[in-house]
Amino acid sequence: MDTHIQVKDLNVYYGKQQALKDVNIEVPKKQITVIMGPSGCGKTTLLKSLNRFLELTDGTRITGEVLVDGQNIYDREVDVTEVRKIVGLLAQRPAPLPMSIYDNVAYGMHIHKMRNDRKEYKAAVRHYLEIAGLWEEVQKRLHDPASSLSIGQQQRLCLARGLAVEPEIILGDEPTSALDPISSQNIEARLLDLKQQYTTVIVTQTLRQAKRLADHVIYMYMGEVIESGPAKEVFTNPKHERTRQYLEGLF
């Protein structure tokens, strides 16, 4: 197994309250890792530690290391915008920017000046809308406001926007929980397509979704990682009592 992200002795505090305790995990390259656990166990916190979103909240304290390709992203010399370019985030609720569909996808590319002229931008926007499975639906209305899309379409737009800055890692915090079943399936299908090229880390509350997506599973409880391993092993033969109970729906 090729490790892409390695978390070492990570502790996170919100003020006095500790949200993550001595977390040590390894996230394999170009696979889907699913984080599971009961509400409030620290899944979102762990995910946000991977793209340095925790520091957007006042009063968080972080100790330990998060290595992406061996580089600690909390190192002083590391530019946080570079980290976030490499580690993309798909939020729980789709948050289209208040601009056109086209501009949403082009936004990050403009920020990083990734293309040379309009033609290249146009081609890139089309490319990423196709990857997100949205091109067919929006090609005739690229300059409509993004808010005119349905929620499911908005989430795919956000996926396209995130992919457009060419990340290596995609994080998703319950990315389908606000969506209808069809749209959820659509996003799941996209994520499965994309795992050839991207390392993916998804938080989910639904066991069935976890089983459909996961190559690798992390089970958390009360801020600690209880169990982590290949999906087959964890689902069929969990090593820990708590994991077994959770999988059997005893929570």
Partner: peptide
């Protein structure tokens, strides 16, 4: 959410304020 959406693609805080 809007600020975060912009920061998430690697925009700086000032770029986020100015553009969004």
């Amino acid at each position: 959410d809007l600020r975060h959406a912009s920061l998430a693609v690697g925009a700086t805080q000032w770029q986020t304020i100015r553009n969004i």
